[in-house]
Amino acid sequence: MKHLILMRHGKSSWDYDVSDKDRPLKERGINDTHLVAKKFGTAPRTIDHAYSSPANRALHTSMIFLRNQGFSLEQFKVNEALYDFSGHSVEQFVNRLDNTLGTVAIFGHNYAFTSLANAWGDKYIENVPTAGLVHIAFRENNWAQISRGTTEQIIFPKHLKH
């Protein structure tokens, strides 16, 4: 059985004249990521490995989330394939994951994550919002063979604010 955690980067700031990859998180993006991480932290699931897009906003999101989980950064890598908006590159990346990994978290972007959450999960999601997390479980034991899984958990910041 394989578990995939897709987390879209937190809300980013357009206040700076920087490239898309260099855009930072807004304060709201930081706060929302903490909220989602704390909620996920109550789940009985250990992440074996985590990967992030090299974009500043995704990398910052991953660091906040993983620190909240007490995750060892020895099992963390940045991968260019996750700087993808269509989902094709992310799908190929996931299909090539090492089969010794049972639970993997990836941090990246839309439209890719909404598209893959709907292709792989069993619950329709209109849009994975910034700092949104979707956890999908697959019956397969080989990443290259995953197809349709079960959407185990959906954590969106708006559901955590009162």
Rank of each mutant, 00 (worst) to 15 (best):
A137E: 12
L4A: 04
W120E: 03
V134H: 12
F107K: 02
A37N: 12
V36E: 13
L160V: 12
S72Y: 01
L66A: 11
N142L: 12
R148P: 00
E126W: 02
E152V: 10
E74D: 15
L116W: 10
G41L: 05
K2A: 03
K161D: 02
T100H: 06
E152D: 13
V90C: 14
T33N: 12
T130E: 12
H3D: 03
P24D: 08
I154K: 09
K38H: 14
L116N: 05
N31H: 13
A119T: 12
I64Y: 12
R67P: 00
A43N: 05
F40S: 03
R148V: 10
D84L: 09
G108I: 04
W120C: 02
L160Q: 05
L6A: 05
G41C: 07
Y124S: 08
T150C: 05
F93T: 00
S19P: 09
H49S: 10
V94Y: 03
D17I: 01
S72N: 14
D84F: 04
L133E: 09
K77E: 15
S13C: 08
F76A: 01
E27A: 10
S72L: 03
I155N: 01
G29S: 10
M63P: 00
A131N: 10
P24K: 08
H88C: 01
H3E: 09
L6E: 02
F40R: 08
K123D: 06
N99T: 01
A105M: 05
V128P: 03
F40D: 07
D84M: 10
S53G: 04
T114N: 04
S52E: 09
